[in-house]
Design a protein around this nucleic acid. Structure first.
Length: 483
DNA sequence: TGGGGTTAT
DNA sequence: ATAACCC
């Protein structure tokens, strides 16, 4: 199968200099083993055609904690260790430890079914995410000590771009150490390692850093997890799950097609979610090979050029998306689901609970939210996961009071939320809600810089440039005057 | 299906 | 404001 042709100019990294450096120090001065060459000065690297003399090759690690919530619970209460343990939210076992998995408990299993399968199952309530969230950020911070470029994915996964760190270690390597270089952990597909291949060498060093990361997580936080090392995020993520629990795997480029072809359905590809998988199915696409060989033009017509091109690249194992440092969270939200909420007073008291927790969190963070949002889910037999929301700016006099302890900031914010509520729900008519959620977002750093001063214009948080570097167009919020 | 998150449109 | 994606 020929991969989609590429300009190859996505990213240029200087690997060739590293190759020359390493090979110059080589014992017998062997010629090395560059990848197969394409006509026209192109080189075949990691499933991508890149111009000769450049390399887009990165070293990415995906770190994935083992049954994270269950691990946190076992650290909180060591008596739970060794017992089958499930973490419960409402009537679901959202995750469980490996003892429970051996006995047939699955993630997101109904509590009834889980207890039936495994009567000895110990359940702890995990609806309050506070301790999980705190531990999650400790993991991210630990990884950031290795390299600052860390991207969070949920609470239990992180990507780290190790390219620079690997480069530095290779520069420190003595020539006699090169021939003794070994992999840490598994090599996917048991592939042969070629120490004359600079790409292999870099990935091996990546595997050693991954092992150090896992060691540090265990020694400093008591957590175990898996790691996958590969040349991009997609492949790193896919390979991290190959040996499970508490093991790591490196993918060498020659085995990337084996890895992606090992997926039995396109839905297993990260980036192809429920909706896209359904649409692909309607086109007769179910395997990775189906997607690779499907007409790009028709796919673009069906899914739009953006999604079509992105997922078809994914099907070849190509993913040029950068590891984007997550930094502090963009939003804080708390939600509660329930069987039924059908009165305004009931809603108000639930909203007050959610807001109170949020104010504690936002106070600890130090930054100030400038937008507040209320989200609801209405009861309906069919359209299940659809939510509706209303948001508005937080009045500046309320923002100012946010950090100041004894000042009542609850009352004005609850008032705002109830206005948003009545804007969404006609309280004069019967209603049936199954979820309420409050979100504080549009977080800005403390406004210490005074308007009109140099500092004001130099403070990034006060400018209109978002973290992605793109200009952010402000969506019109509902304003208080609109009510 | 829970209780979160993100980015794109 | 919603829709898609991720865990």
């Amino acid at each position: 199968v020929e991969p989609a042709e590429e300009a190859g100019g996505d990213e240029e990294e200087d690997a060739v200099q590293a190759m020359e450096r390493v090979e110059a120090g080589e014992t017998g001065g062997s010629p090395g083993a560059p990848g197969p060459e394409e006509p026209g000065g192109l080189t075949w690297v990691h499933g991508q055609v890149v111009p000769e003399g450049s390399s887009s090759s990165r070293v990415i690690v995906h770190v994935d904690l083992d049954c994270f919530y269950a691990q946190v619970e076992m650290i909180s209460n060591p008596e739970l260790k060794g017992k089958p343990l499930g973490v419960q939210q409402k009537y679901l076992v959202v995750t469980c430890n490996y003892e429970a998995r051996k006995l047939g408990v699955k993630k997101l299993m109904n509590v009834r079914d889980a207890k039936e399968k495994c009567p000895q199952l110990v359940l702890v309530n995990g609806e309050d995410l506070t301790r999980y969230r705190e531990m999650s950020y400790k993991v991210t911070e630990l990884l950031e000590e290795f390299s600052p470029v860390v991207e969070r994915l949920g609470f239990d996964e992180n990507f780290v771009d190790l390219t620079e760190m690997v480069e530095k270690r290779l520069q420190q390597l003595q020539s006699d150490e090169l021939s003794a270089l070994t992999v840490s952990g598994h090599v996917y597909n048991n592939q042969y390692i070629n120490l004359h291949d600079i790409v292999h060498i870099r990935l091996l060093v990546g595997s050693q850093i991954a092992a150090e990361m896992r060691e540090a997580m265990y020694n400093q936080l008591g957590l175990t997890g898996c790691a996958g090392v590969a040349s991009n995020k997609l492949l790193a993520k896919l390979v991290s799950g190959v040996f499970k629990p508490n093991q790591q795997t490196v993918l060498l480029p020659e085995s990337s097609q084996v890895l992606i072809q090992s997926l039995s359905h396109v839905k297993e590809m990260p980036g192809i979610g429920y909706k896209t998988a359904k649409r692909l199915e309607a086109l007769g696409i179910s395997s990775v090979l189906d997607l690779q060989t499907f007409s790009p033009k028709i796919l673009e017509k069906e899914l739009g050029i953006s999604v079509a091109q992105r997922i078809q690249k994914l099907s070849f194992g190509e993913d040029n998306s950068p590891v984007t440092p997550s930094g502090p969270p963009q939003s804080f939200s708390e939600e509660d689901s329930f069987k039924k909420c059908s009165s305004e007073v009931e809603a108000k008291s639930k909203i007050e609970e959610l807001l109170a927790s949020l104010l504690n969190r936002v106070c600890q963070d130090g930054r100030k939210p400038h937008t507040i949002r209320l989200i609801i889910r209405r009861y309906s037999s069919e359209n299940h996961c659809s939510r509706e929301s209303r948001q508005c700016p937080i009045p500046s006099h309320v923002i100012q009071k946010l950090g100041t302890g004894n000042c009542d900031v609850m009352t004005p914010m609850v008032d705002i939320l109830m206005k948003l509520f009545r804007n969404m729900v006609n309280v004069k008519m019967p209603f049936h809600l199954t979820l309420l959620s409050v979100c504080l977002c549009n977080l800005k750093a403390l406004n210490t810089a005074k308007k009109g001063t140099i500092d004001y214009y130099l403070t990034p948080s006060l400018s209109t440039t978002s973290r992605s570097g793109k200009r952010s167009f402000k969506m019109k919020d509902t304003h208080m005057e609109d009510f």
